[in-house]
């Protein structure tokens, strides 16, 4: 599904990713862990096409397409979704209006008609319910005045509605209490299927108690230095990132 091949990325001339490689197959859940500044979030940003991330060498293919050659919105329409670490507010634009535009853009890409308002509302309400977000949030401005936890749940709600092929969760667990963490994890788990994959970027092992990954990769200084199954995450929690860094060095 996703194949990252020896990817080098600069941010403001400074190399951040230095030869990242990763293979993700349908149905898999990959966790990317690593210390601060190792390039975890950069990976998410460069895959979605955010400006300011210069690919100097390497490549990414997604569902057989050259991902890096596609504009941001095309990547999304192909089924790539990013749950943002810091969801931004769009005052005055209701969640509902925003999501309808998004759903319709994705459907139109698949050659489908726009959803009628009633069907859309039904789906949106279901998605809200799944992440325990009051329906009133649909009428509020996108993330406008939401608490940190509400913003994160709103991201997951969007993911449930958009049903992406590959979802990247960028530190979705940061700033969440245990209850919210469970809600988020349940949302993700309910979407797990044979034809859908996840990349879960996190700093802590905690989230992985709820979302069990098939693979865990440790990113240090812009490269995957160690991969394993979920026991690697437990080992990391016990020994800290210093252990890996010294082992690699």
């Amino acid at each position: 599904m996703l194949s990252i091949n020896n990817l080098h990325v600069n941010v403001e001339e400074k190399p951040i990713l230095k030869g990242l490689s990763l293979e993700v197959k349908p149905g898999e859940v990959h966790a990317i862990m690593g210390p601060n500044g190792s390039g975890k979030s950069t990976t998410g940003h460069v895959l979605t096409g955010r400006e300011g991330y210069d690919v100097t060498s390497g490549g990414v293919s997604f569902l057989g397409k050259d991902l890096l050659a596609l504009p941001i919105e095309e990547r999304a329409r192909e089924g790539l979704f990013l749950a943002f670490q810091y969801p931004v507010e769009i005052p005055g634009v209701s969640n509902m209006e925003f999501l309808k535009a998004s759903v319709d853009a994705l459907r139109s890409h698949q050659g489908l008609d726009s959803l009628d308002a009633v069907t859309f509302m039904k789906k949106a309400r279901e998605a809200c319910k799944a992440v325990k977000l009051d329906q009133a949030f649909l009428k509020r401005g996108v993330n406008e005045g939401f608490s940190g936890g509400e913003k994160k749940r709103n991201e997951i709600m969007q993911m449930m509605l958009l049903q992406p092929k590959l979802a990247i969760l960028d530190e979705t667990d940061s700033g969440l209490d245990i209850d919210a963490l469970q809600v988020v994890a349940e949302g993700v788990n309910s979407l797990r299927s044979d034809d859908r994959a996840f990349i879960v970027i996190t700093h802590y092992q905690r989230l992985l108690n709820y979302i069990e990954p098939d693979f865990v990769h440790v990113l240090v200084d812009g490269k995957v230095v160690k991969s394993g199954d979920r026991t690697l995450a437990l080992e990391l929690e016990e020994k800290g990132y210093g252990w890996i860094e010294s082992e690699v060095a």
Binding site: T48, A76, L82, V88, A105, L106, H109
Partner: peptide, 10 residues
């Protein structure tokens, strides 16, 4: 804001 919209396919 723009990036969020684009990332959602808009």
């Amino acid at each position: 804001q723009l990036h969020l919209c684009l990332q959602r396919g808009i």
